[in-house]
Design a protein around this nucleic acid. Structure first.
Lengths: 352, 352
DNA sequence: TCCCGTCGAGTCAACGTTGTCTCAGCGTCG
DNA sequence: CGACGCTGAGACAACGTTGACTCGACGGGA
């Protein structure tokens, strides 16, 4: 269990420019110039300074530097997601990180767990650290607390969900159209009784997907039935329970539209537990790993997470580069991936 | 596509303590005291200051504060993972974030993509931002570049993989024992020809797991056969190809031990493509979502990611709290989860 | 009444860095 | 040969904040 010796007897504090300057026998400002690669330094002196810096293990203090510098930039942005461990959030922040990396910018990541209070807290914590900008997948429904921050020059971009009571750049998937596509796909397979299972309706994406569901039914002249609609929240367990209840109804649905990742997986589990995976059609919103390897494969409306993240990050950096144009709301299209579960026809399995 | 009006005509810079002080008619130091909740301030004055701060939308500048403060702490730590988008890294950083959150500490996350140069770069970038400490899943095999940083007082903890040429706290899974358990499990099911598929052997975890594989074979008096050993690297595609080649050998293995996540999934795909998923036994190292829902379910050696991350974070914070004890190397046990694929017996399916 | 201790607020310098200005030294040109 | 421009390095102040110290007012005890 135990290993080596004490890590360091006296953790001497970090060397500063002053110490480098002393060792190199130059003024502190000259060290600054060398570190910042200002060309008007005698190469011989520059070499001496660099040698001294290496010898001391000198590393510039970016926080001090950004404090003094004109623009006050920290080369750090903040990213607030629902949960850094979930695949959607993880993919999103990785994409943002990639864009940031190209500019030497680092990303502070925070998880909100759908808690609006936590959103405010963390946004403040990021601002207190003077991040140059913020990419937010919001949890709350009131973002007016960011108005003063925007006015103070902190750029904010919303991804996946729109801001409320705030004017800010936004990048979202075309949730409504995606849901319409999903339901139309099931209608085309002959289904007339299509259940909806989704996250709480207070979440804007869930609301939009639900809206698309209702709209598609309406256009297809299918009466809306509250009985087969469940806003369960984003957990596998509750989705499993809700799906079970739906399928044991006297007049059960012949198809499911699940509008969120965990809900989709919960429904998949429930269908399999009931042995109905080849009988009840199923389309989920948002793709997930291994969806293709199940049998049947799960048909999904896939979001372009890469595009979502990249667009958001690029909008943010354009603002940081001085873009003062009106705020924009960008919608990223979704696409249907047919894998089997969504193509089960209404009369039961293998009727086509 | 377009939305609102210009975000702000003149992005006034952020209000400072000086401005709050002016508005409240007090000295700047008094504002400092109020912000830091020093109790020796007249409640009436404190209220006036707070009012002024709110009016101006004042937010303290933590970078300036940490510069001046005695300890120089930024309440920020750095976390370097293989790829923030992969489930293992994501779960790990989320756990670290959780521990950090309890202390009001934020986490800067960076992805290394197995690139040692990138590891050094990012570690430096984090240090330049004066993070209080670093949690690293290393990509490189030489961490001596961190020696001077350690001496300068930056705490470093390694997770999942050991450091090389550096004495630092470390938390890893019991990779060797996990592999031994996996292979023993397959031996118990009667297998004598067990293939190994894993990540590149230069990666320490892969090497340890391979070592466990060889050791278990040796103890079981099974001759080692190079033919059925593949160090493919961590990609589904190459794992698929390697698995296919293994199973079309004249004397193919009757069981697979896959020592990495993506390799496991690749093998699963290949087995299904060949229709051998119920014939060839399979145990993977590291659990993955939906492993239980496949048929057969995939038996795995599960790592306790939660424990790994939490232990690492706690070790780091203990160092930050002044712990000067010798560095420690903690090993977290793994556990076998039986789901079906690993219990397929040697004679073919359903022979037990 | 006077002295001293206490309490609360203010002054000053400093954290590590960089923008602005100054200045010494050198070469050039009239 | 002296004025001038130019080049390269240093002095100084400032970024926003806080630690150390100061100072005035007030209250109590002798």
């Amino acid at each position: 269990m135990t290993q080596g010796e004490p890590p360091s007897p006296s953790p001497r504090s970090r060397p500063t420019m002053r110490e480098v300057a002393a060792l190199a026998g130059v003024a502190i400002k000259t060290v600054s110039r060398v570190v910042n690669e200002v060309p008007t330094v005698d190469p011989a002196i520059a070499a001496r300074v660099r040698e001294a810096a290496d010898k001391l293990g000198y590393r510039p203090n970016l926080t001090a530097s950004s404090l003094r510098r004109g623009d006050g930039r920290t080369a750090t942005i903040g990213m607030l997601v629902e949960d850094a461990a979930n695949p959607f959030s993880a993919a999103l922040s990785r994409t943002v990180e990639n864009v940031a990396r190209e500019r030497g910018v680092l990303v502070l990541v925070g998880s909100l767990d759908e808690d609006p209070a936590r959103e405010r807290e963390l946004a403040r914590a990021l601002i207190d650290r003077r991040v140059d900008g913020l990419v937010i997948v919001p949890a709350g429904r009131d973002h007016s607390y960011l108005i003063s921050e925007q006015r103070s020059g902190t750029c904010v971009v919303f991804v996946d969900r729109e801001p409320s009571l705030l004017d800010a750049d936004t990048v979202v998937s075309d949730n409504r159209q995606g849901a319409v596509t999903a339901v139309n796909h099931l209608l085309k397979a002959g289904h007339r009784r299509i259940a909806y299972l989704g996250d709480r309706a207070t979440i804007s994406t869930a609301a939009q997907r639900f809206d698309g569901y209702r709209h598609a039914l309406e256009v297809g002249h299918i009466p809306y039935d509250d009985e087969i609609v469940r806003h369960t929240g984003a957990s596998e367990e509750s989705a499993i329970a809700a799906t079970r209840r739906l399928l044991t109804l006297p007049d059960p649905p012949t198809a499911l539209f699940t509008s969120q990742n965990f809900v989709t997986i919960g429904a998949v589990r429930a269908l399999r537990a009931l042995g109905l995976q080849d009988t009840v059609a199923h389309v989920g919103f948002d793709d997930f790993p291994l969806a293709d390897i199940l049998s049947p494969g799960i048909s999904v409306i896939a979001q372009d997470v890469e595009q979502l993240g990249r667009t958001a990050a690029e909008m943010l950096f354009r603002r940081l580069d001085g873009d003062r144009s009106p705020t924009r709301a960008v919608t990223i299209p979704t696409r249907l991936i047919e894998r089997g579960s969504g193509e089960i026809t209404a009369g039961g399995p293998r009727h086509d």
